[in-house]
């Protein structure tokens, strides 16, 4: 391990500040529960939550797929492969239900693409 460039208290400040700061962010809504109990507010938060989920899925699928073709001529295709596998799993889950089988099929397609592209 390299010599740390920061004093121990600074590293503890990062660990505690990042950890406890994130904890504080989560707790803000706990103290405003009356505000978030309205039907319209709940609908707003549910919809925003699903928007965030969609954003997480596409962003992380694009990032994971990009690794498949990094440094190759097909560099632009990798993110679409990742996105396609997530889309395939979504469609299978919508069609047949369940989570594990669609996840397994989507992952199998992704790994197969990886074996072909990464060798």
């Amino acid at each position: 391990m390299p010599d740390p460039a920061f004093a121990p208290w600074q590293l503890w400040a990062v660990a505690a500040g990042g950890g406890l700061g994130t904890l504080a962010l989560r707790l803000i809504p706990v103290f405003g529960q009356n505000v978030i109990r309205g039907e319209r507010t709940r609908a707003f938060l549910d919809r925003a939550g699903y928007g965030i989920l969609g954003g997480i899925v596409s962003s992380s699928a694009l990032k994971a797929g990009a690794v498949l073709t990094a440094g190759q001529g097909l560099a632009g295709a990798g993110p679409w492969i990742g996105l396609g596998c997530a889309g395939l799993a979504l469609l299978l889950a919508l069609w047949r239900g369940g989570t594990l089988l669609p996840t397994g099929i989507g992952l199998a397609v992704f790994v197969t693409a990886g074996l072909v592209l990464m060798g």
């Binding site: 989920l53 699928a61 690794v67 596998c85 997530a86 799993a89 979504l90 889950a93 989507g106 992952l107």
Partner: peptide
């Protein structure tokens, strides 16, 4: 890394 978005997609469904 790909398992997370693929699994989450099924949760959205």
């Amino acid at each position: 890394g790909a398992m997370i978005p693929i699994y989450f997609a099924t949760l959205i469904a």
